[in-house]
């Protein structure tokens, strides 16, 4: 028994060293900007850079649009498949898993070929068009996570009974969707939304190849040109990841609580 405990502590300790040392080193490096003493100058420099605010808010707006459009597409689809077309479930699940099979860089490569200026639908011709393309790209990347989160939440409610009850009270389709189904799967939508947010805000490949002024390409640019700002940005990104994971944990706990109360 004690031998087992010893090995377990040893495994955790070795892992802790591997995981904490890079964080400590990044923190230390980010504070070296002023000679001879530790300071937060690099952080000040990061936050005073106007492009930091610009690219970050651009990415946040894109992520929020992705979440809204994604939820409006995924929730009705998952609902409809469960209610009316259960025989399509394997097909839809297969499609939602495809983004795990096809890497993002390949998908965006396809976009650039299909929607370039000489194509039938030249989305990359204008900023708005490219932004739309980016939103759909983010939606594709988050599809496996969003669909699974919503579908899991829907498993705990009986969509057929809810729909019949609402229909017999005279509810229209929009009422059923937005006032019966959406509120019931809200925790699923929220946990999908946080994952989508985390993916979209930091994403490098898609916005970089689509030439959009997003946060990921900005990070790479700073990395190529500055010395002390990159580790500061890495620490900021780590803190942001931490916050979104805590939010995801809270929503999944709420979801489990709701399922347990039923």
């Amino acid at each position: 028994m004690t031998a087992k405990k010893f090995w377990s502590w040893l495994a955790v300790a070795v892992a802790a060293v591997y995981f904490i040392v890079p964080l400590a080193a990044t923190m230390e490096f980010s504070m070296r900007m002023r000679r001879g003493t530790y300071s937060f100058d690099a952080y000040r420099s990061v936050f005073s850079d106007q492009r930091f605010a610009e690219t970050f808010s651009y990415s946040v707006v894109m992520a929020l649009i992705t979440i809204v459009v994604g939820a409006l597409l995924i929730v009705p689809t998952a609902y409809w498949v469960r209610l009316r077309m259960p025989y399509l479930r394997p097909v839809v699940e297969f499609v939602t898993l495809l983004p795990l099979v096809v890497p993002a860089i390949v998908i965006v490569f396809g976009y650039l070929r299909l929607y370039n200026s000489s194509s039938v639908l030249p989305l990359t011709n204008s900023d708005t068009g490219t932004n739309i393309l980016l939103v759909f790209g983010f939606m594709t990347m988050s599809l496996p996570y969003m669909y699974r989160a919503v579908d899991t939440a829907m498993r705990t409610i009986d969509v057929a009974v809810l729909t019949e009850a609402a229909e017999s009270l005279g509810a229209s389709w929009t009422t059923i969707l937005f006032r019966c189904i959406f509120p019931n799967v809200l925790t699923g939508v929220l946990s999908g939304a946080f994952i989508t947010f985390a993916i979209a805000v930091g994403e490098f490949t898609m916005p970089s190849l689509l030439n959009r002024p997003a946060f990921g390409p900005y990070l790479a640019l700073i990395g190529a040109n500055k010395a002390y700002e990159p580790p500061a940005l890495a620490m900021i990104a780590f803190a942001m990841t931490w916050v979104s994971i805590i939010l995801i944990n809270i929503t999944t706990r709420l979801q489990k609580g709701a399922a347990g109360a039923r």
Partner: peptide
């Protein structure tokens, strides 16, 4: 450990590269 793993598995991309450059790069702490 599980919460940290949730964070670290999502801590990829450009910031991860920065962190390792600050650790094991030519001027890294280690």
């Amino acid at each position: 450990v599980l919460t940290f793993c949730g964070v670290a598995s999502n801590f990829a991309g450009v910031p991860l590269a920065f962190a390792f450059l600050a650790t094991l790069g030519r001027l890294g702490l280690v």
